[in-house]
């Protein structure tokens, strides 16, 4: 299968490849010399990572895992030597213009966004090691209660201060989400007030299970080291309208859920015909009898 895929990919890209690519990707000198105008900091690298994940990962793969798509020419891993020897300006130029299988991002991404991707890529450069100081996340904790009739969550956030005491955490963003089969679904956000308290009005139309039960989870932003607040089986959501595919007798179903008219018609007609056949066979027996007299 892999071979087959590789072949089709090769066929796909060979034609334009022959016209357009040489082994070396030339970058004009003035472009090569460009410097990243945005600061090399955690925030920009993080933004760059998000952009990379949406726009680049599908071909270049996860950084360091060498799981890029087998295209011609092959998209290099961002942590590879081949990638990192590019200057900031060269990376920016290549993202902007693209070539062969790589799309040009000139119109899709703003200049600022492109530079952030460069920042992200440069964060793998050994030369830049130590430039980004990992900020120690602040320790925090969450508490909360739910009023199921009023559909209100009362939440409070606290943080550990220098002397090891829990203090209210003011003006912090709280993210409320619900557990779903394959992940958590964001419901909304709340902000703590000056005394570290927040109220969250649960949206009326948000669906829980068929009873209206829902498993909630409240988290703080990434800057905090905090266990999420888990509130399971709150009867706070609207009951889901679970559909029952087997409510009606339908044609596509099994015999015990097929329409009555169909069963009766089939059995009636077949039974009737075979009764008549049985009668005819009975007549044949009578012929035999009549011959004995």
């Amino acid at each position: 299968m892999r071979k087959f895929f590789f072949l089709s990919a090769a066929v796909l890209f060979l034609l334009p490849g022959l016209q357009g690519f040489s082994q070396v990707w030339e970058v004009p000198a003035d472009q090569d010399a460009l410097k990243n105008p945005s600061a090399f900091n955690n925030e920009n690298v993080k933004a760059g990572r998000e952009l990379y994940n949406t726009h680049c990962k599908s071909c270049h793969g996860d950084p360091g895992k060498n799981n890029a798509l087998p295209l011609v020419p092959p998209p290099p891993d961002v942590t590879s030597e081949q990638m990192l020897q590019n200057s900031e300006g060269a990376l920016f130029y290549k993202i902007t213009t693209g070539r062969v299988a790589m799309p040009a991002f000139e119109t899709t991404l703003t200049e600022e966004q492109r530079w952030r991707i460069v920042s992200f890529m440069k964060s793998f450069d050994p030369a830049n090691e130590g430039l980004l100081v990992k900020e120690e996340p602040v320790k925090a904790r969450l508490q909360g209660a739910a009023d199921e009739t009023a559909k209100v969550l009362t939440l409070s956030a606290q943080t550990l201060n220098a002397s090891g005491e829990w203090m209210p955490l003011p003006h912090a963003d709280l993210f409320i989400s619900a557990k779903r089969t394959f992940g958590s679904l964001a419901i909304g956000q709340a902000k703590t007030n000056g005394s570290g308290h927040a109220e969250f009005k649960f949206p009326e139309e948000f669906k829980g299970d068929w009873e209206g039960l829902v498993d909630l989870r409240v988290t703080l932003g990434e800057d905090f080291s905090c266990d999420p607040l888990v509130m399971n089986r709150l009867k706070i959501a609207a009951p889901a309208d679970t559909e029952n595919l087997f409510a009606d007798r339908v044609l596509w179903s099994t015999n015990d859920r097929t329409q009555w008219w169909l069963i009766l018609a089939y059995l009636g007609v077949v039974g009737g015909v075979w009764l008549v056949i049985g009668y005819v066979i009975f007549q044949i027996l009578k012929i035999y009898k009549a011959g004995k007299e």
Binding site: N53, T54, K57, S58, C59, G61, L69, A178, R180, T181, F182, G183, S184, L185, A186, K207, D209, W210, A240, D241, T242, E243
Partner: peptide, 24 residues
């Protein structure tokens, strides 16, 4: 690899993306 698919439970009204694992 391209976030094409969302999959989930219609009763829960939630689908999760197979690539990004985002749930909407």
């Amino acid at each position: 690899p391209n976030s094409v698919y969302w999959f989930g439970d219609r009763n829960e009204d939630a689908v999760t993306n197979g690539t990004t694992k985002e749930t909407v």
